[in-house]
């Protein structure tokens, strides 16, 4: 009996171990780290963002009430997945955008996006 249960558990475990299911790291967004990163990357230098005090950032649009906004850069639908792509490489969507590519990594972009949506 016990052996049978053990075998079942092991086989279930093995199934989950398939590379495309478990090896892909699913990151849990960390809003607090996102806030630190928003400061550290200097987002506040260009954008007015709730909770971030830097210069009076007015070079780009304000990001206050970000969760309510419908579009990113007047083009992309404002969703987590699109925002992450935009943060990592704005020029991929808009060749001549004034927003620079800051070399933000995937994990960092997830946290930054999470912070912006939490505002």
């Amino acid at each position: 009996m016990y052996v049978k249960i053990l075998i079942i558990i092991l086989s279930v475990g093995c199934q989950f171990k398939q590379p495309d299911v478990l090896d892909e790291k699913i990151k849990v967004p960390d809003i607090k780290r996102g806030k630190t990163l928003v400061f550290a990357y200097g987002c506040g230098v260009c954008h007015t963002i709730s909770g971030i005090r830097d210069y009076p950032g007015a070079i780009g649009p304000p990001l206050t009430d970000w969760a309510k906004r419908k579009y990113i850069a007047g083009k992309l639908p404002n969703r987590m997945s699109e925002l992450i792509l935009w943060l990592k490489n704005p020029q991929a969507f808009e060749k001549n955008s004034a927003m620079p590519n800051l070399g933000i990594s995937q994990d960092e972009a997830i946290d930054i996006a999470a912070y912006l949506y939490s505002q």
């Binding site: 260009c46 007015a58 649009p61 009430d65 309510k68 419908k70 007047g74 004034a98 927003m99």
Partner: peptide, 19 residues
């Protein structure tokens, strides 16, 4: 009205449409 960006503090805004 959140279809486009808020035009708050527009006098100080540096870029139009980031362009």
């Amino acid at each position: 009205s959140y279809g486009g960006p808020p035009l708050t503090n527009w006098k100080k805004r540096h870029f139009i449409a980031g362009s």
